[in-house]
Simulated scan of single mutants.
Amino acid sequence: MVYLLEPKPYTWIRSPGLPSELLDKQVHGVTLAHEDVPAETTVKGRVALPDICHANDGLLFVSERARAALEELVPGRVAFFPLNLKASENLLVGRGFFLFDVLPRAQLIDWDLSLTAPRIVRPADGRESRALKAGIADPSVKFKAVRPETPPIWREADLDRPTVNFFASKKHVFLRDETWEALNARFSGQLVARKLGY
């Protein structure tokens, strides 16, 4: 099965102010660098941050404890960037947080079975470009079966055909079944159990 790495919703008073350029890079699959992360960002909330969470724009970040778990479960597959969160101690409870970038790419969306719509933006060669018509968790989105070579964690790659480019947002992080189960066991109650369709 394929799982979406989706933290349970957190109610912010003030969400991390991460630049739109950072989100744009993640959507297009540009590898992040230290200079992409803001020097400081202010956050406000009422209770301690979970170990795996996301800002209102969907950018994922993790605590030191979650970083250690990911480094153990998927070694060498995730890059971490310290996130300087300016927040009250009751929010941080002595923990550091990291923005992260998932390095492997895989192509598991079944574009032949999923509903698509044309994109305004086309590839440089002028071919048609299409994207998913609905959100990634919509039942109309179908995935191919996980294969032995599928990474334990990945961001989706585009599919290029001679006359059309199928564009997938690289913002979403996907996990193999066993990877999600292991992460969920360590951070019980922090993740949404969202299996994606076959």
Rank of each mutant, 00 (worst) to 15 (best):
M1R: 12
Y3Q: 13
L4Y: 00
K8N: 14
P9Y: 13
Y10M: 15
W12F: 13
R14I: 12
S15Y: 00
G17P: 06
L18M: 12
L22I: 01
K25T: 09
Q26E: 15
Q26K: 14
V27E: 08
H28V: 02
V30A: 08
T31E: 14
T31Y: 05
L32W: 03
L32T: 01
H34S: 15
E35R: 12
A39L: 10
E40M: 13
T41N: 04
V43N: 02
K44G: 08
K44Q: 10
G45M: 11
I52S: 05
C53Q: 04
N56F: 13
D57G: 10
D57V: 11
L59H: 04
L60R: 02
S63I: 01
A66D: 01
A66H: 00
L73Y: 11
R77A: 15
F81E: 07
P82H: 11
N84R: 02
N84D: 11
K86D: 13
K86H: 11
K86P: 06
K86I: 12
S88Q: 01
S88V: 03
E89S: 15
E89N: 10
E89P: 09
L91E: 09
L91A: 12
L92W: 08
F98L: 00
F100P: 03
L103Q: 14
P104G: 14
I109K: 05
I109L: 09
L113Y: 07
L113W: 03
S114E: 13
S114W: 07
V121Q: 14
R122P: 07
P123T: 10
D125M: 09
L132P: 00
L132N: 07
D138C: 13
D138P: 08
P139E: 14
P139D: 14
S140M: 05
V141I: 05
V141H: 00
K142F: 07
F143W: 05
F143L: 04
K144I: 07
K144L: 13
K144R: 09
P148K: 02
T150L: 02
P152T: 09
P152G: 07
P152N: 08
I153E: 03
W154G: 05
W154V: 01
R155N: 01
R155Q: 10
A157W: 01
A157D: 11
D158Q: 07
T163C: 04
T163Y: 00
K170M: 08
F174I: 13
L175R: 03
R176Y: 05
D177R: 06
D177V: 07
D177N: 13
T179N: 02
A182D: 11
A182Y: 00
N184S: 06
S188C: 12
Q190F: 07
Q190L: 11
